[in-house]
Amino acid sequence: MEIQKKMGIERVKITAGYFILALGAFSMLFPFVWMLLTSFMTQEQIFSYPPVLLPEPFIVDNYKNIFEKIPIVKYFFNSTVVSVFTTLGQVIVSSMAAYAFARLEFKYRELIFFVFLATIMVPPQVNIIPLFFLMREFYWIDTFYALIVPGLFGGFGVFLLRQWFKSLPKSLDEAAKIDGCNPLQTYWYIIMPVSLPGIATLAIFTFVSSWNSFMWPLIVTNSDLMRTLPVGIAVFKGSFRETTEWGQLMACAVISVIPVIFVFLLGQKYFIKGIMMGSAKE
């Protein structure tokens, strides 16, 4: 009797837990579902109240219109170029430095590593103004250089990969050395291939944050054709005067969210692992 009662309570608890979790998940995803549905509605239906959930009629005009109104294909292209090159560069630069910090012995190693670590703690807004003037001196404003090059550096990648490389057995390097590999060969042929999960973590992180980046591309681009997706859409959003074309904005939002969700679902495992690795640094 007692046990049955307890089991009953347990079952109620689990059901309640499920209910709360489902409610939470619903409020997380609802804005996206709403956005997707709205992007297929007519302006008339969008502004009707009480709100209608399903598009009726189902139209694709919002998508057609944004392709005519704004260079969204170019924005998409710019964002892709910036994110891909930032990711590639960040992985190469960080992994090289991380390899030296994790596997090689040299003077001032700890001191230099500390400089890298310290840069993580400084808010990015502190250096954004001088960085802007630096870009102007280099004549990089409104070019891909300004959008990509400063994004290649930062302590986070070095830190993350150093943790990873340190966890590999030292015998790997020694075996490679006996086989006549110099450190460059060891790095490229031995360490990198066995570290693919760690590299994937950094790559996904960099890709997503580069794709989503807003303040920097806003500051260093002037011409419409150099804008990245978030900045282009923000300008488009700000251009409405009388009535906002919500359907078209939603269509833009849908287009810009697809690649990150795709990359995330592809590498979800690594992404979550990366977050946990970051939290276990103490």
Binding site: M28, L29, P31, F32, W34, M35, V208, W211, N212, F214, L229, P230, I233, A234, K237, L249, M250, C252, A253, S256, V257, V260, I261, F264, F271
Partner: peptide, 13 residues
Amino acid sequence: IPFITPLIVAAIA
């Protein structure tokens, strides 16, 4: 999923 989406998307929605 909200964590990885661009803020512009969140702002519009």
